[in-house]
Amino acid sequence: MEERPPSHPRVAWEESESSDESSSVLEPVEVESQQPDASWLPVYEEEEEAVDFIEAFVKNPEKDDVQKIKFLRNIVTVCTTAKEKGLLEGLDIFCFRNMLAENIQVLLDEEPRDKLCTVVRQQAMLAISALSTVEVVLEDEMMFLLLASFKSVFLLPPKEELDIRLYDTTLKSMDIMLQMLLISPPTFSFTVNLCSILQVGSFHSVGFTVAVPHPRAR
């Protein structure tokens, strides 16, 4: 898959170089004049509140769990509405400009490895599923998101030590994400890589029932 060139409004992004700030804080660097908000986006008229929250979230260095969950749910809302109402134009620019894939990965990486006490993981995987349906995430970005998702679950303590209800709903969200990706993967190489990850991951050990088709069968 060829790398998507930035379109107008064009924005370049870089991580903050300040040693006083967390490495997870992603800051925009403007290289061309751009509209002050996302009102140019066709889906904006339908989901103004969700779009505005997403843009505000990625610019805010202080994020609590409630805001993280709302951010992820709003991604699902915007993608779902855009898909259902045919308002996909410019959505790739919006996702690129706000580094949605990178911000989701940061949220997954920040989740504690020794406990499961919020729905951030499951909402992140549902957001990944939503992004895949509108095809706005590059293949490499999607693989990093998948690896972050797997790591956030596989490194947890045994399920007997966790909130079993939350654990089960998290696995269900991962199952939904994988089913979505297996139905319409971006490229042949993505399918091959995903199948390799699924085989190495030993999904049966965590209760998965995802059927993995051989890539040549597609």
Results as ranks from 00 to 15, higher is better:
E161K: 14
P157T: 08
N98H: 13
V136R: 04
P158H: 05
A130H: 03
P112H: 09
L145T: 04
K159S: 14
S152M: 08
A148P: 03
Y167E: 02
E110N: 13
Q179E: 14
P112N: 08
D109Y: 06
L162E: 01
M180W: 07
E111A: 10
E135S: 12
D175W: 11
I176D: 13
T118K: 00
D175M: 09
Q179G: 15
R113N: 11
E111D: 09
V120T: 10
R113A: 13
L88R: 11
R97M: 06
L178H: 09
L100T: 01
E89G: 06
S132Y: 02
L147A: 11
L166S: 06
K151I: 01
V137Q: 00
N103Q: 10
S149V: 04
D175T: 15
D92C: 09
L100Q: 02
L166I: 09
S149N: 02
F154A: 13
D114A: 08
M142E: 07
F188L: 12
L100C: 04
L155Y: 12
E89R: 15
I176G: 01
A127M: 02
R165M: 10
Y167P: 03
E160Y: 07
N98R: 02
I128V: 15
G90C: 11
L107G: 00
P157H: 08
K115E: 11
R121I: 15
L145M: 10
D168T: 14
D109M: 05
L126Y: 08
R97G: 03
R97W: 00
P158G: 04
L91S: 04
I183Q: 13
F150I: 05
L145C: 10
L156I: 03
M174E: 10
L178Q: 09
D175F: 11
Y167D: 07
D175C: 10
F154C: 14
S152A: 14
E139G: 02
L126M: 11
L155I: 10
M177H: 04
E102C: 05
E111R: 05
T187M: 03
Y167A: 05
